[in-house]
Every structure is written in structure tokens, then in C-alpha cells.
Amino acid sequence: MSDTEIIVCTTCRPPGASRELPAAGLALFEAVQDALLECELDTGLHKGLQVRGLACMSGCARACTVTLQAPGKFSYYFGDLIPDAETAAQVIACAQQHLHSDDGNLARNARPERLRSGILARLPPTGLSGLGST
């Protein structure tokens, strides 16, 4: 089983947000790091999850953004996320679903509430054919 990587845009700012204040994306990144550490301490369920921040994932109109990806699995790109501890916990829960899915598919109704909408992209695994292409 390949690790699922959680990538959080660290420069995301909601439209109209002041550039004088810290980026909301950075706040979300730090909250996800904290949630992953808490998960590690409480349950050990962090195994197989990696988190990293990335400056700009080009989702500026839909800040804050997060991607879930792993080799051989569908990748998901979410936007319009609230940069708080609840969203961070739900990102970790969704990443665990992705980790334990054979192909990375995340059914909408099975995803945590804050990741049921705001999906910006669902990308197929590289190198696989026959996934409904025309």
C-alpha cells in the first residue's frame, strides 16, 4: 500500500483577504500538521499519511485548497475549505479513506462533510487505461 500524501496550499487566501495577514492556507496547513500529530499520539492511524505544504496550487479563486494523492490511485483536489481544526480533522479522515482504498476512489457520501463539496478535480492514476475514456 502506497502512502497517501496530503498537500496543502500554504499561500491560499480567500478573495479580498489582506496580504498583510498570514495566509489562510498556511493556517490550514498548520492545522492539518497538528491534526496528524494528534492522530499519531491518540490512535497511531497516521501511518501511511504524509503532509506537505506547497506555495500556490493555482486554486486562488477557491481558497483554501488540499490535494490527496498516491501512486496508482485517483487524486483529489478540494477547494473552498475553512482553515480550522475541524476541517483539518476531516482532511485526515478523508486521507485515511484514500489510503485504504485500492484505487483511491472516494465516494461523495462516504467523504467527511466538509469534503463532499468544493471538489475542484478528480484525476485518474497515471499509466492506467480503460477508465471510461472515449
Score class of each variant (00 low, 15 high):
10 T>I: 15
23 A>P: 13
16 G>E: 12
10 T>L: 03
22 P>Y: 02
17 A>G: 01
35 A>V: 05
37 L>S: 09
25 G>I: 02
12 C>T: 08
22 P>F: 02
28 L>G: 07
33 Q>M: 08
24 A>F: 04
34 D>Q: 11
14 P>H: 08
40 E>A: 15
25 G>W: 01
12 C>G: 14
24 A>Y: 05
37 L>Q: 15
22 P>Q: 14
12 C>A: 06
14 P>K: 14
36 L>F: 02
16 G>F: 10
11 T>C: 06
19 R>I: 11
25 G>C: 07
24 A>D: 05
33 Q>N: 05
14 P>L: 09
14 P>S: 14
40 E>T: 15
11 T>G: 04
21 L>W: 09
34 D>R: 08
38 E>M: 07
36 L>H: 05
33 Q>A: 07
26 L>R: 09
32 V>C: 00
19 R>G: 13
15 P>G: 01
9 C>P: 14
29 F>E: 08
30 E>A: 01
10 T>F: 02
35 A>T: 09
15 P>Q: 10
21 L>N: 14
39 C>L: 15
29 F>C: 02
37 L>E: 14
33 Q>C: 10
30 E>Y: 04
31 A>S: 13
38 E>C: 03
18 S>D: 11
13 R>E: 12
23 A>L: 09
26 L>I: 04
33 Q>P: 00
36 L>M: 14
18 S>E: 12
25 G>P: 10
25 G>S: 06
32 V>N: 00
28 L>Y: 07
16 G>C: 05
18 S>N: 05
32 V>P: 00
35 A>L: 03
34 D>E: 11
36 L>N: 05
25 G>M: 05
31 A>N: 07
23 A>C: 02
36 L>I: 14
17 A>E: 15
11 T>D: 13
12 C>D: 15
33 Q>W: 01
27 A>D: 09
34 D>M: 00
13 R>M: 10
38 E>Y: 10
28 L>P: 05
28 L>F: 08
11 T>N: 12
18 S>C: 04
32 V>D: 03
37 L>C: 01
20 E>T: 06
15 P>K: 13
25 G>R: 08
40 E>I: 00
26 L>A: 05
35 A>Y: 04
10 T>S: 15
34 D>L: 03
29 F>T: 03
10 T>Y: 05
18 S>G: 01
13 R>S: 06
19 R>V: 09
28 L>Q: 03
35 A>I: 02
23 A>K: 09
39 C>N: 15
22 P>L: 10
38 E>F: 02
17 A>M: 15
27 A>I: 02
30 E>F: 00
14 P>E: 09
18 S>W: 10
8 V>K: 11
13 R>Q: 08
39 C>K: 08
20 E>A: 09
20 E>N: 14
18 S>F: 10
25 G>L: 06
25 G>T: 07
16 G>L: 12
14 P>I: 07
35 A>P: 03
17 A>Y: 04
8 V>Q: 08
31 A>I: 04
34 D>S: 12
26 L>T: 06
28 L>M: 13
9 C>M: 11
25 G>H: 11
24 A>H: 01
28 L>E: 10
19 R>Q: 13
